[in-house]
Design a binder for these strands. Structure first.
Length: 293
DNA sequence: ATGGCAGGTTAGACCTGA
């Protein structure tokens, strides 16, 4: 099972690139951020024609998230519960992996069948924590606030937002032990994720309170899938449009895929795909892909 | 030290992003 995340910086502009990318990278699910599109304008039919279901939560001009998937999404959640927010920044949904779905269709795997049938008298929670529920994956797509600058109201909003995200995910992990948190975190977790840590020191995206919030997510029992593997030095997922930053590899690693502990053993790879950043009219972010065995 | 690019809005600069 492959999952990916991509901040497209306007889905209207990037739709052809997203469709091309999916054709070349037929992932099971792709999380999008900064669609900047109202739901009435979401290109659902185009994705359907490409073989993808979609769930989306958008607004005019800013923000907007979506999940494209091979199998239909279940149990959708939009936004962080009990955290009122005008901004459309979160979608969560549950998916069943293709391989298991095939076994399910085959029907001769009795043990698998038993697991997949809803058990009467067993609570949703008990079903969720059962080690037998190995096919159910919770996908959480996030577009974390940018924060603008460390002395701004937007920065304070960012920190409050991240605290609310952590509190919610703590509950979410009890229901869904197999959880993947994908998106644009707008945080470079460590100095090695920054092209010039000295110049960026204390700046928004790298400041200590933001990095502490990132570590708080890890403390829930999530792991940065990118760092489970040996990676090239100076690996980034975002480059400024200015200063020929991409050509000079002046970037930051802001887009992350965190996996819950029960998924770590299944995690086969995590890569940043720089190819879309080389296209004409690229997004300033590029996709990150994780493979779960 | 500053801003440099891009997208959206709504037809001008301005806001936001990171």
């Amino acid at each position: 099972m492959k999952l990916a995340t991509w901040n497209v910086n306007s889905l209207k502009v990037r739709l052809p690139q997203v469709l091309d990318w999916l054709a070349a990278n037929p992932v099971d699910a792709l999380c999008l951020q900064e669609t900047k599109q109202q739901d009435k304008d979401f290109p659902q039919a185009e994705f359907q024609a490409a073989g993808y279901h979609s769930v989306f939560s958008g607004q005019k001009t800013y923000n907007g998230v979506a999940i494209l998937s091979r199998t239909p999404a279940g149990d959708m959640q939009f936004g962080i519960p009990d955290f009122p927010d005008e901004h459309k920044r979160v979608i969560a949904a549950t998916f069943t992996s293709d391989s298991i779905a095939k076994v399910k269709q085959g029907g001769d795997e009795r043990t698998t069948q038993t697991v997949l049938i809803a058990r009467p008298g067993v609570s949703e929670e008990a079903n969720a924590v059962s080690p037998m529920q190995s096919d159910r994956i919770r996908v959480v797509c996030v577009y974390v606030p940018n924060g603008q600058s460390v002395d701004s109201d937007k920065y304070r909003y960012k920190l409050a937002w991240l605290a609310a995200l952590r509190d919610w995910l703590k509950q979410e992990l009890k229901r869904y032990p197999q959880l993947v948190l994908l998106g644009d975190y707008n945080i470079a977790p460590e100095d090695r994720d920054v092209y010039d840590p000295v110049a960026w020191q204390g700046n928004v995206l790298v400041s200590e309170p933001e990095r502490q919030q990132f570590r708080n997510l890890l403390q829930l029992g999530l792991r940065d899938s990118f760092r489970l593997f040996e990676q090239p030095e100076k690996s980034y997922s975002w480059w400024d449009y200015r200063m020929m930053a991409f050509r000079r590899n002046l970037g930051l690693r802001l887009d992350h895929i965190l996996v819950s502990e029960p998924l770590v053993a299944q995690c086969k790879s995590c890569v940043i795909d720089k190819a879309p950043r080389k296209l004409e009219r690229p997004s300033d972010h590029t996709p990150v892909i994780v493979e779960l065995g």
